[in-house]
Design a protein around this nucleic acid. Structure first.
Lengths: 168, 168
DNA sequence: TATTGTTATACTCTATAACTATA
DNA sequence: TATAGTTATAGAGTATAACAATA
């Protein structure tokens, strides 16, 4: 049920991919051609890099980006319902269900009936979940530091502004 | 083996998610709190929006982002090997294998032995694959149009520049 | 009728590990 | 030793469809 830590982020894999793109003397000219002008392509590559670095950073904690986001939001706004999580994080109901199930299975959150609306369930974080989130926030800080190291603070602000226009 | 078109991109799902974030009168304040300041969070959300729009646009073609990228690169540089694809697109060897298998299974590409290096395989696109790619390019154009509609042309250039720094 | 949670199902992507063949 | 391709395995995310309970 939990994520085996041995399967995540082999340290030799990512460096290898990057290094060989640079200095391997093979017949690979590393050209991307017209693909290089596609915005969506760069978003996908950037997301992929961030995903990999995140996974490396979170090897010990065994938490994914989504799981941390969900945990984070549940702590921030107690008794939030699954449907609310889905809307804020733009995740499908069934997907949220799977994520919440995993977090509940690890004892990080608990479900409870909402007294006012029988359909809804109030989600709340456990002590164990809060402890995991506290560690996660530290790891996120480190991860963000790496991410922001590519930019000036003005550029960080602008990048967020540009990205927000896409998903807002 | 092929992708059932009925399972991709229900037209009512994405609009619902977006619409309800805006005007639903529920107790959901749609606040993201401190999460809103995390760069990685915005990259994930933006990527997700792009992914969904791409999937909608490509419902009929039944091609994913990765599959189009691979097809594109194979046509651009004939006889490219799987390992080269992986390096340029920053995709794991095993993952490339799966993608190439799917494309081959649909008759879009063929594998051939490299005469100079017995380990490598030269991948080439078939007529059927070229036809699919031609349609895909048109769909990509439409998709990019949507994506770029959020920005001025100067902003598009800057966004690409910023993203490239992350994945380069 | 609409919303919420739920389960079943299925597919893509990602990655690890181990193997074979070739260089 | 290193690289390329391959297979097996496994888990996360994504989404559709259908259902029950509630509003």
């Amino acid at each position: 049920m939990s994520i085996p830590s041995s399967r995540i982020a082999g340290e030799d894999d990512i460096p290898r991919l990057v290094a060989e793109t640079r200095d391997s003397g093979s017949e690979d000219g590393e050209t991307l051609g017209a693909l290089d002008g596609i915005v969506g392509f760069h978003i996908r590559l950037a997301h992929n890099s961030v995903y990999r670095h995140f996974t490396e950073t979170f090897t010990d904690l065994n938490l994914t980006q989504k799981q941390v986001s969900v945990l984070w939001l549940i702590e921030d706004s107690h008794d939030i319902a699954q449907a609310d999580l889905g809307r804020r994080l733009q995740i499908d109901r069934a997907t949220i269900m799977a994520i919440v199930n995993r977090l509940q299975g690890r004892g990080f959150i608990v479900r409870g009936k909402s007294p006012s609306d029988g359909r809804r369930q109030k989600l709340s974080i456990t002590d164990q979940g809060a402890a995991a989130l506290a560690k996660a926030r530290i790891a996120i800080e480190e991860h963000e530091q790496w991410l922001k190291s590519h930019f000036s603070s003005a550029e960080v602000a602008q990048l967020i502004d540009l990205l927000r226009r896409i998903h807002k």
